[in-house]
Design a protein around this nucleic acid. Structure first.
Length: 317
DNA sequence: AATGAGCGCAACCGCCGTTCC
DNA sequence: CGGAACGGCGGTTGCGCTCAT
């Protein structure tokens, strides 16, 4: 509406993909690799929009895709991640090897959303401490408010979509106590710090760790345009970007590695050198993680679950 | 057997951030 | 530096299937 489409729709096929189209696309990508989506249909001889090709490949044809049969482990993980991240499906999917954001989004909309809602309803009726889908009685500190999607949007720990849309990791390093873990550690303290940040504005500006975009991407850090450095502390408070940053960083780090040392140590000692936590080494390990290996997947899920348990306790306090 | 409601999911849409020229 | 192209995201739509009536 009021915007030109990504490509001319004239003469293009729409709707469900045929097996033949799938084959053409798969063959083409096998030969030429992903990317250049806009030109791909023409080159491959497909009567499809480039975006459509990309979506079809990413959500359906990619060889490493797992489809259906979402395990209870994965289900629990999705619920927890959703509680922490909101509707940031791509981030959630990033922690579930072989799953696509679309699949998770659909699964949530058709199954989990309802399930969680029902559970919350039950919990409200029973006036008992809320527990998510898990059968284990942990997370008793999580409030019902946090489990309620609507309430979640108001809850400071949950990322609002769109407004803070970011698939890359933000990094704030100006303040001595602005480390992610420290932010997680003590909310009240964080608010005080934010006030400090206001006073020291614009020096509180969000600093980019690395200057060149390539390394930004590689390290998962995002540099801000100057105008964004003007972000007021109020905005940070409103959107609780501080928490977002922590989670984004953690979500993009290697949980196996992160959890291999005492998580509580990190919480108790605000680290001025954040790179210690999210070092290149950790990121390297993470990117090298072999998702095809079921054991690794399982380990990842478990280490990540451990992290979630910890963070949920913190957030619940 | 017909049909309509409900549901699941693939596909589409528009917006936004990043990259390129 | 600005605009176009590109890639990615979350929200929404609509088709096809299942099931109840």
């Amino acid at each position: 509406m009021g915007r030109s489409p990504c490509c001319s729709k004239e003469g293009l096929n729409r709707g469900a993909w045929t097996a033949h189209e799938d084959k053409i696309l798969t063959d083409y990508i096998k030969l030429h690799g992903e990317g250049k989506w806009r030109n791909l249909p023409k080159r491959a001889g497909l009567k499809r929009c480039g975006k459509s090709c990309r979506l079809r490949w990413l959500n359906y044809l990619r060889p490493d895709i797992k489809r259906g049969n979402i395990s209870t482990d994965e289900e629990e993980l999705i619920i927890r991640l959703h509680k922490l991240l909101g509707n940031r499906w791509s981030l959630i999917a990033g922690r579930l090897p072989g799953r696509t954001d679309n699949e998770i989004k659909n699964y949530w909309n058709t199954n989990l959303g309802k399930k969680v809602k029902d559970l919350n309803q039950q919990n409200t009726n029973n006036s008992s401490p809320t527990m998510m889908i898990s059968t284990k009685p942990k997370n008793s500190k999580i409030t019902q408010k946090q489990n309620n999607p609507k309430a979640m949007m108001q809850n400071s720990h949950v990322v609002r979509t769109k407004a803070t849309k970011c698939s890359k990791v933000l990094f704030i390093n100006s303040l001595p106590h602005s480390s992610p873990m420290h932010t997680l550690q003590n909310k009240d303290e964080t608010e005080t710090e934010t006030e400090t940040a206001t006073e020291t504005k614009p020096s509180m500006a969000v600093d980019a760790v690395a200057s060149d975009s390539t390394s930004n991407n590689r390290n998962g850090f995002l540099s801000f345009p100057d105008k964004d450095k003007e972000l007021s502390a109020d905005l940070l408070v409103d959107f609780n970007i501080g928490d977002d940053i922590c989670l984004s960083e953690l979500l993009n780090s290697d949980f196996s590695a992160t959890c291999s040392f005492d998580y509580n140590d990190l919480l108790s000692s605000p680290c001025s050198d954040q790179t210690r936590m999210f070092s290149d080494e950790i990121l390297k390990n993470w990117t090298q993680c072999n998702f095809g290996d079921e054991t690794n997947v399982s380990n990842n899920l478990h280490s990540f679950t451990s992290f979630l348990e910890s963070s949920e306790e913190i957030l619940g306090e």
